[in-house]
Design a protein around this nucleic acid. Sequence first.
RNA 1: GGAGAGGUGGCCGAGUUGGCUUAAGGCGUGCGCCUGCUAAGCGUAUGUGGGGCUUAACACUUCACCGAGGGUUCGAAUCCCUCCUUCUCCGCCA
Length: 421
Amino acid sequence: MLDLKFISENAEFVKDVVKNKKEKANIDELLNLYENKKKLQFSFDNLKATQNKVSKEIAKKKRNKENADDLLAQMKLEAEKVKKINAELSESSKKLENALLRVPNVYNKNVPIGSSEDDNEIVRYEGEKKEFSFKPKTHIEIAEKNHLLDIERGTKLTGSGFPTYVNKGAMLERALINFMLDFHITKHGYTELKVPFMVNRKTMTGTGQLPKLENDMYRITEDDLFLIPTAEVPVTNFYAGEILNEKDLPVKFVAYTPCFRREAGSYGKDTKGLQRVHQFNKVEMVRLVKPENSYEILDEMVADAEDILKALKLHYRVLNLCTGDLSFASAQTFDLEVWAPGAQKYLEVSSISNFEDFQSRRASLRFRGDDGKPHFVHTLNGSGLATPRTFIAILETYQNEDGSIDVPKVLQPYLQGLKKI
RNA sequence: GGAGAGGUGGCCGAGUUGGCUUAAGGCGUGCGCCUGCUAAGCGUAUGUGGGGCUUAACACUUCACCGAGGGUUCGAAUCCCUCCUUCUCCGCCA
């Protein structure tokens, strides 16, 4: 969340942000709630101060065996007032909190203003589109021919969007996960975390999924738990509520988890095969850093994710997301889109974002600085990478005319040396 | 799932017949003094968040926070209720 003081001092800017991010937060209403809460807090504090003082006098009199009936009578009335205003105050605080949690993060000055993905800025292309001497097949055709996926039976087990990987398909998927984890750990210095796949409401609120996206997540109502839509949630919240030492920064975590997304409202869009699914696997990088250089770190994380695509020798492009495509919590996001020759389009495989102190304020993630005082860290995360579309790109890029697939060199050790599927 | 015992400041730990404790004492840490150096010793400071005052910061002042949320009371770390959680034992189970 944003700092209330910041919002009140930059109200017009924040209103622009809400508009450009296509959010709904009402800033004027929020500021009214803020003023109202401050007033109530002031009255409450003053009443409490009186009450505390007189209660001490009563205590003193009682100790001295003096009569305190008049004070007691007086305080009885005061107590009523305190109770009443306290109720108003907590009501007001709750409303303010709820409103504040729905205000999106501000974006930084390098984010292009725009309303949809068409306004995203293409930063650069890396590598070349592979030339084929034949018409490249789609991943669905290739998977079918080699029996790598069983979409129908996955659907039978659960429903559409829950793909089941079979035999070499399952092995290739697992190889990808292991390769990416090892790569980030050994080449980029990340520490692996293996986290729960369900989290509670507080954790979901910490990274900004709640309250806004409750309908986009799978929920265990019995225990009020949510299936994570990304490892970002448990990993970023790992140190929630703590004050870290400056020397503990930067924190660099990498974690593999499955991700669960209802994708409500996107039915029928890109649903073919693995393009858009309800459950998928992802290796996620998360960093907690000092505020001063978080944008350098963002570039570094983009490079970390790119390194995977480079190692797999896949063609891709880098996008700087415009305001309209930027998520609620992000200050700036770069997407990596990999080229899929069969589908003849670029597919998003990674999203790397700097949240500045938006998440750390929500989750209370702080470090003690040189000045001895706590400061909010900046949080960043990025996929490194999501597997389904990477899987698609591998199948489609490495396919041969006879329908077989060459295994990318870096994955061969993870498939017992297998060179061809 | 059942039974019992706990959850206090960075850490340890007192406080549970409600009121000179709006958290004692210790450790750790910062600063100062002392001292060939170090250690010891002495002194002093040391939580988080919000509000008021202030151009702002400092300072000052005030409120809240003793697992979380309610309640009783003039007054709650202390009493009552609900929940969470840790440990021990039992049961069930991969």
